[in-house]
Amino acid sequence: MAKKILITGAAGFLGSHLCDRFIAEGFHVIAMDNLITGDLKNIEHLTGNKNFEFHHHDVTKFVHVPGKLDYILHFASPASPIDYLKIPIQTLKVGSLGTLHCLGLAKEKNARILIASTSEVYGDPLVHPQDEEYYGNVNTIGPRGVYDEAKRFQESITMAYHRFHHLETRIARIFNTYGPRMRLNDGRVIPAFIGQALRGEDLTVFGDGSQTRSFCYVDDQVEGIYRLLLSDFSDPVNIGNPEEISILDFAKEIIRLTGTDQKIVFQELPKDDPMQRQPDITRARKVLGWEPKVSREEGMKITYDYFRGMSPEELDKREHKDFSEHIRR
């Protein structure tokens, strides 16, 4: 009988790729999403698969899954600045109440749970590169704090369940990930730059562009998460690509990739925007035998081809979801 896994946030960018991977590995996937930021188009190709089922549900409410459950991947959360700045309360709730409900379900089912943390737990780091022993430099009351602190609390309650209830838990600290199915205008660097280039707009760089990021292709990210879930390691593990690049240099790469001749324009740096972001993946290499394999050149070509295949209407679309119902809660 196939192992059963619940994946929350399953209609999102990363969640949908995880659904694909676990289906391919022979698991029965129970996908769950409230579709605030997710999109059913990301998982519609799995409809009709006997090992796939979808539940439209908000994990900040009680979560019930009938029958046996072997694993849980908790990936439900807004992940882009546009989203968590629009729905700050919902972001905090899914990191706290949503995680509590998933941990409670894991305890009830005696299932192993992996929670999706983030490099944002390091805030604007004073240590470079960032390893898992670094506690971070986070502004708890700044605009980004709703996301950063939701994830930091998520890690704390997960370790509490691990220590107090002896629950099998795993924590993935995910660094910038990219690939097909990203939302074009969600505020993240790669889709923002590609969208501007494809629309013939100038590329917007915040600050002077000296801030750095490290981009991991989605297939590499999924492989790291898969290995971590099946490992016997309960402390946090950085999953990301340590190849670092400045935002300004990356904007120039996008212009070369797209063959466009846009200018680069500069705007004020958002508050608490991290100046450096690079994972130390020593632990992932040692514990999981994992490191990224896909070069940025290769991954970006695949990603650009995905966005280039969009219709003019899709390219012109701006994020306009009505979050008011969730803001009121």
Rank of each mutant, 00 (worst) to 15 (best):
residue 83 D to G: 00
residue 79 A to L: 13
residue 45 H to W: 05
residue 79 A to G: 12
residue 36 I to K: 10
residue 104 G to I: 02
residue 70 D to H: 07
residue 33 D to Y: 09
residue 34 N to E: 10
residue 84 Y to E: 00
residue 103 L to E: 03
residue 41 K to T: 00
residue 102 C to S: 07
residue 65 V to D: 04
residue 46 L to M: 11
residue 102 C to K: 03
residue 61 K to I: 07
residue 106 A to T: 01
residue 32 M to Q: 12
residue 43 I to G: 07
residue 84 Y to I: 00
residue 48 G to M: 14
residue 52 F to A: 06
residue 90 Q to S: 10
residue 79 A to R: 09
residue 33 D to G: 11
residue 52 F to M: 08
residue 62 F to T: 15
residue 38 G to N: 10
residue 68 K to L: 14
residue 39 D to W: 06
residue 67 G to W: 11
residue 107 K to P: 03
residue 44 E to P: 01
residue 32 M to P: 05
residue 89 I to H: 14
residue 107 K to H: 11
residue 101 H to V: 01
residue 54 F to W: 05
residue 43 I to M: 09
residue 83 D to N: 04
residue 107 K to N: 11
residue 97 L to P: 01
residue 74 H to L: 13
residue 46 L to S: 05
residue 32 M to L: 15
residue 97 L to D: 05
residue 44 E to R: 12
residue 66 P to W: 04
residue 65 V to I: 15
residue 107 K to Q: 13
residue 41 K to M: 00
residue 61 K to F: 15
residue 94 V to Q: 11
residue 74 H to M: 13
residue 94 V to N: 05
residue 78 P to E: 08
residue 56 H to K: 14
residue 99 T to Y: 01
residue 96 S to E: 01
residue 94 V to S: 14
residue 48 G to C: 14
residue 55 H to P: 00
residue 81 P to E: 00
residue 85 L to K: 05
residue 95 G to I: 01
residue 64 H to E: 15
residue 86 K to E: 09
residue 82 I to T: 06
residue 45 H to A: 13
residue 54 F to A: 08
residue 81 P to I: 02
residue 62 F to W: 14
residue 40 L to F: 10
residue 85 L to I: 02
residue 103 L to P: 02
residue 88 P to F: 11
residue 102 C to V: 03
residue 39 D to Y: 08
residue 73 L to M: 15
residue 88 P to Y: 10
residue 75 F to Y: 15
residue 50 K to C: 05
residue 50 K to Y: 05
residue 47 T to W: 14
residue 68 K to H: 15
residue 78 P to F: 07
